[in-house]
């Protein structure tokens, strides 16, 4: 509580009737990687805009890096870096020009710009293509460039709005590794918006879960996983014509299941009971092609939280 870089109290923003951010109260500490989880329309991007003084809040207070976003917008934005949802790099310019110009806009000392740009191009493995127009880049390269641009002025606080969405697994891992490096080795505080729970678990120190503008839960990924209470379950792929038979057998074991194509999802199964369930099915002549623990999804968290709220 001593070293908060972001503190908000009852932060609220509506668009007409629609409440995009609803009474958000939140604290993010210096040096941590904070994950802001939520589905489309949960209010993640709106929160980033509020925290950077780009949008005005209708009620509530916010303090970011000791400044008020509403009053000290420009001074605050000098110290934050934002990776926007769409890469928003200028495709008609080269990577070098994109970085050089933004360094200038952000007021990086003139004599340092050149070195700075070279360093960051190297760090993001873009040096080879630095003088090519960005229009010809792959999506992953554009995203790396956008990330590089967000860092060009060495911000104290970095906002990343869905940094890996739309990237293939390799490019996504590359971006995740970079984020890890920024936080671990360079000491940046990072605020990441994502709808990918697994990703948040991998890279975040703490996670807040948003739904329809409201913060549902906040804690470390393992705290949240504990709240899930092993609900995640087992997923198996079986012969399509055996689906009904298999469900009957599971029913006999007092297990509910849902079907999606030929994938059978059995939520009630934890790690310990997995072998028993599989062997029962196999003994009954069911062909099992694949079995895997189901990845917990955001729904599971919502479900767990709503259930807890009810009980």
């Amino acid at each position: 509580m001593t070293n908060a870089v972001i503190t908000t109290h009852g932060l609220t923003r509506k668009f007409g009737e629609k409440i995009a951010v609803d009474g958000l109260t939140l604290e993010v500490q210096a040096g941590e990687v904070f994950g802001f989880l939520g589905h489309n329309g949960a209010g993640k991007t709106t929160t980033v805009r509020l925290l950077n003084g780009v949008l005005a809040a209708q009620s509530g207070t916010a303090e970011v890096l000791g400044l008020s976003p509403a009053k000290d917008g420009p001074a605050l934005r000098r110290r934050t870096g934002v990776l926007t949802e769409t890469p928003s790099v200028d495709e008609r310019l080269t990577a070098r020009d994109n970085l050089r110009i933004y360094a200038d806009i952000y007021g990086v000392p003139r004599e340092q710009i050149r070195q700075h740009v070279d360093d960051i191009l190297a760090m993001f493995e873009l040096s080879d293509r630095a003088n090519d127009k960005v229009g010809g880049y792959s999506k992953g390269m554009k995203q790396r460039l956008a990330l590089a641009r967000a860092l060009i002025h060495k911000p104290d606080l970095l906002f990343l709005d869905e940094p890996t969405s739309g990237l293939d697994p390799v490019a996504a891992k590359q971006v995740r590794d970079l984020i890890g490096h920024l936080s671990r080795d360079e000491g940046h505080t990072v605020f990441i918006c994502t709808h990918n729970l697994t990703e948040a678990q991998r890279i975040c120190d703490r996670v807040g879960v948003m739904e329809q503008g409201k913060l549902l839960a906040i804690g470390t990924p393992s705290e949240l996983a504990r709240q899930l209470g092993g609900r995640a379950g087992l997923e198996i792929e079986i012969a399509p014509d055996q689906v009904e038979q298999a469900r009957g057998i599971l029913h006999g074991l007092a297990l509910d299941s849902t079907v999606e194509h030929d994938l059978l999802n059995i939520p009630g199964v934890d790690r310990e009971s997995t072998p028993k369930v599989l062997s029962t099915l196999a003994t009954a002549g069911i062909s099992i092609y694949r079995a895997a623990p189901a990845e917990p999804s955001l729904e599971d968290i919502y479900f767990a939280i709503h259930n807890r709220g009810l009980s």
Binding site: P74, R78, V82, T84, T86, S88, D90, Y106, G107
Partner: peptide, 14 residues
């Protein structure tokens, strides 16, 4: 159109 305005909007300008 090109979505580049959004980056400009986060810069330390009034």
């Amino acid at each position: 159109d090109r979505k580049t305005l959004e980056a400009l909007i986060y810069t330390p300008t009034t």
